[in-house]
Write a protein that binds this DNA or RNA. Sequence first.
DNA 1: ATTAATTTTTAGATTAGTCTAAAAATTTAA
DNA 2: TTAAATTTTTAGACTAATCTAAAAATTAAT
Lengths: 223, 223
Amino acid sequence: MEKSLSLTEENYIKAIFQIGTTPESNVSTNALADNLQTKPATVSDMIKKLSYKKLIFYKKYKGVTLSASGSKEALKIIRKHRLWEVFLVNHLYFKWDQVHEIAEQLEHIKSSELINRLDDFLGNPTIDPHGDPIPDANGQVQLGPSKLLSEMTSHENGIIVGVKNENPLLLQHLDKINIRLGLHIEVTEVNDFDQSMQVKLADLGTLFLSEKITSQILIAKNL
Amino acid sequence: MEKSLSLTEENYIKAIFQIGTTPESNVSTNALADNLQTKPATVSDMIKKLSYKKLIFYKKYKGVTLSASGSKEALKIIRKHRLWEVFLVNHLYFKWDQVHEIAEQLEHIKSSELINRLDDFLGNPTIDPHGDPIPDANGQVQLGPSKLLSEMTSHENGIIVGVKNENPLLLQHLDKINIRLGLHIEVTEVNDFDQSMQVKLADLGTLFLSEKITSQILIAKNL
DNA sequence: ATTAATTTTTAGATTAGTCTAAAAATTTAA
DNA sequence: TTAAATTTTTAGACTAATCTAAAAATTAAT
Ligand SMILES: [Mn+2]
Ligand SMILES: [Mn+2]
Ligand SMILES: [Mn+2]
Ligand SMILES: [Mn+2]
């Protein structure tokens, strides 16, 4: 019976998972320190511990990658985080910009019984309020392919399926200009100079968007 | 802006609240150590800290009592604990013997917005699944007066309104013999030798109950 | 009212997680 | 390819929460 991870250990595992683009990509000490708002020296210590526990692979100065058991843990935490976000938005009527911080706490509650019942209660959702996929009880995620709005060219169109990060200020701004998941969007013009765009939203008419925003919006890639 | 309590501090404050019968009663170091499954030496240290923070009154060797701010904190934690228990039973279909441990974790989630929305979502319940009153957002509790079944005499009757503790084995046993909150109960006989009782339950006929059980069941005191 | 038993506190260590400052390794640039 | 810049690790220290062992205070029992 291996002891369950501490809250801190869970946060490290999750950060490694989320920083690494591919499962094999090495995550640097500094990147982790940045993400976890701590100091590189602190990260170095924790890395040794996680490595000893075989949750990560680690070679000095070469960064870390998650082991199979590390990935499994990460997916469990992300599953909990996203299911709680769905609960907060769908049942407690929080806005999408208000839930991340609370979910950061709730994701550490230990009870697989609880999370599976919550999953059922919510109707086994496959995406969270920000369009991120929710891993199932076995850690499987099905993520429809998507691209950034900023990567699209004039006259391309598609459906908004997600936002790249959960910064409350970004989310509030998107609310303000009526951008939300599920909307059909068409690029009408791209300005070469600053990559700003003019787009047309279903029903809502025309909008100008800076690259700062278009680089955060995910569009479904229709296969 | 006073820093929020640590999980450990919260558990101490709650234990002091729950051990003390009246708000003024002094809670001993050993009683706390027992309740919190720790050692008296550890309690002595923590007591100093909580005293320094003015959450408790403390005189060496004389035990502790909660200050006004300490009581307020305790009631907030108890409110959270009991609201989460209602959620787990009413919406996730946990049994009443399965929720205490999970609520022990959930009670430490920090967000008054969350707990007030949860309260509304649940329909502002006044009691938890074990019959314990739920403090409102201002820390007010309204507890209908009750007495122990073991204190009743032959031919007395009343409504079961609570259980004194949340030991899963006790709760499971009560389930097994069909005793639950809201039932009308009448004492038909009390055996002087061991205080065991014969009782009649609405619809469910006659039952024999040992003092071990009757001393855990609360009956409404009809005024 | 002494003595004995119990309770509580202090003293000294330990572990997890954190920090700063300095040393070592790696990467980048001249 | 050597020097400079950057990244990472180590060394040493700190805080919160815990423990064991021993000392001090209180309470109970002769
Ligand atoms: Mn989130
Ligand atoms: Mn999310
Ligand atoms: Mn409980
Ligand atoms: Mn309860």
